[in-house]
């Protein structure tokens, strides 16, 4: 059974994707997963060649057959999401973006004029990169349910890892602690929380730790841009120690990273300070497993 190493952070912009991409340079035997379906961007650094693509079905949406509809107004009256309206021709229709797929209108319709229609909410891909196989996804604008899409990409990665006897699955998660993150850490073997030395960084690290504990998943912390605020970095270290959470390493602030990313290059390959830190972090991760 392959081991899922999941990288998350309580907030966006803490350096999660950059760290995941860097670890992809170091960890050889792995499948890479970009589970940040809402804002997938690791492809910019890993430059995947798509080998397999599939559409992903989101929740079905209600659809009114105007020929059957007798305009009794029952559906519009009952809909709690304000999704059913009347157009200029006096016909009832469903606003797909508002429809929550609850099917109440379909059940309530006295003449069976309402059906649920399959809707595609995104795409997922199996790709090859210079750093290994990558499974990633893209959620369409306005689409919801990224948690399910995250479950799908992780499941596909697990199947590939089993088939090819690959030991690790390296997962770049979404920021925050919402549904996609819960899907991301479900079944995780170890979580690497990326925190930056700011009040928000500390606050969100605590939330992430609480989430990991509730899922009984071991976790460690990486302090990114640690030298921007040594006092906050110490606070993170104290919190981690109190919580029995290993500090896996600290990455200094380095404008080389920004320049590398701007040039769509891998910071690990171009920034010596980052390379040294990530190598150290990688050793600590392996020891923590």
């Amino acid at each position: 059974m392959s081991k899922e190493l999941v990288i998350i952070s309580g907030k966006g912009g803490a350096g999660k994707t950059t760290l995941t991409a860097s670890l992809a340079c170091v960890l050889k035997d792995k499948v890479i997963v970009d589970a940040d379906a809402d804002a997938a961007n690791m492809y910019l650094l890993l430059k995947p060649q798509v080998k397999h693509k599939e559409l992903f079905k989101g929740n079905p949406k209600a659809y009114i057959d105007v020929d059957k509809c007798i305009k009794c107004d029952e559906c519009r009256r009952l809909c709690r999401f304000d999704a059913i309206h009347i157009n200029e021709n006096g016909e009832y229709y469903v606003d797909e973006l508002k429809c929550d797929s609850c099917e109440l209108c379909k059940i309530a319709c006295p003449v069976g004029a309402i059906e649920m229609k399959d809707v595609y909410s995104g795409e997922w891909y199996e790709s090859e990169t210079p750093y290994g196989i990558m499974v990633h996804a893209k959620l369409y604008p306005g689409a919801e349910n990224s948690g399910n899409l995250v479950t799908m990409v992780k499941h596909r990665a697990k199947l590939i890892a089993e088939e090819k006897g690959i030991e690790y699955i390296l997962v770049d998660g979404s920021p925050g602690i919402g549904c996609p993150v819960i899907s991301t850490i479900s079944g995780a073997y170890f979580v690497i929380a990326v925190a930056e030395p700011t009040p928000a960084g500390i606050h969100d690290l605590k939330r992430v730790k609480e989430l990991c504990d509730s899922f009984k998943v071991k976790s460690g912390v990486v302090i990114n841009k640690y030298d921007l605020n040594m006092q906050k970095t110490k606070e993170i270290g104290d919190f981690a120690e109190k919580e029995g959470m290993p500090v896996l390493g600290r990455i200094p602030f380095d404008t080389c990273v920004n320049r590398a990313i701007t040039d769509l290059e891998m910071p690990y390959n171009r920034c010596e300070k980052v390379k040294k830190s990530v190598d150290y972090i990688f050793r600590n991760i392996m020891e923590s497993l």
Partner: peptide, 11 residues
């Protein structure tokens, strides 16, 4: 029900 794919295809 979450992935809306059948259990055979999902292995």
């Amino acid at each position: 029900p979450e992935l809306r794919e059948d259990v055979v295809k999902l292995k």
